[in-house]
Amino acid sequence: MKIDDRLLFPRGTINAESKEELIRLLSEKLWECGYVEKDFSESVLCREKRYPTGLKLHGTTFHIAIPHAEPEYVKEDAVAAVVLSEPVPFCRMDDPEEEVSVSFVVMLAIRDAADHMKMLSGLVQALQNPERVEELSCAAEEKELAKFLKSIQGGSVNVSE
């Protein structure tokens, strides 16, 4: 999967009051760049309600959310990522009634479940390293975010099924 700089937003370049606003914004960008169908954003919002994607990570305060849609809304695999100066609350994946303040949102427009998992496990692993978190929160340019995402692609968990 190629990383498209037009979908990467370093700290301070996007602010949102709510997860809904953020999801709409990122979906719009994905759509403008031709990676997803017009209905992608509705599918993500709907999915987020049923199966929230906020993830309170262990060993860091830099928590993430990985909103995504059903695969049929994806035309070509892509990720949109934003580092937030003001964290936005997302409901927790492991406990939908609880919220977590999210600083890094990676919207996945990826069709294959195994690729999803590689991305997620790579992210989780990277964010447990304080240096990588620092690298991410200080990233001022798209290309630095791109470098980060490229480095985690591939992840570390072997898919055996």
Binding site: L55, H58, M93, D94, Q125
Partner: peptide, 23 residues
């Protein structure tokens, strides 16, 4: 791996640690 509170005859464990990286 989600917060699940069901009543069953078998034991139930929470596996979120495998997702969050809590070794």
């Amino acid at each position: 791996s989600t917060n699940y509170k069901g009543n069953h005859s078998f034991p139930v464990f929470n596996g979120i640690a495998f997702v969050t990286g809590d070794e």
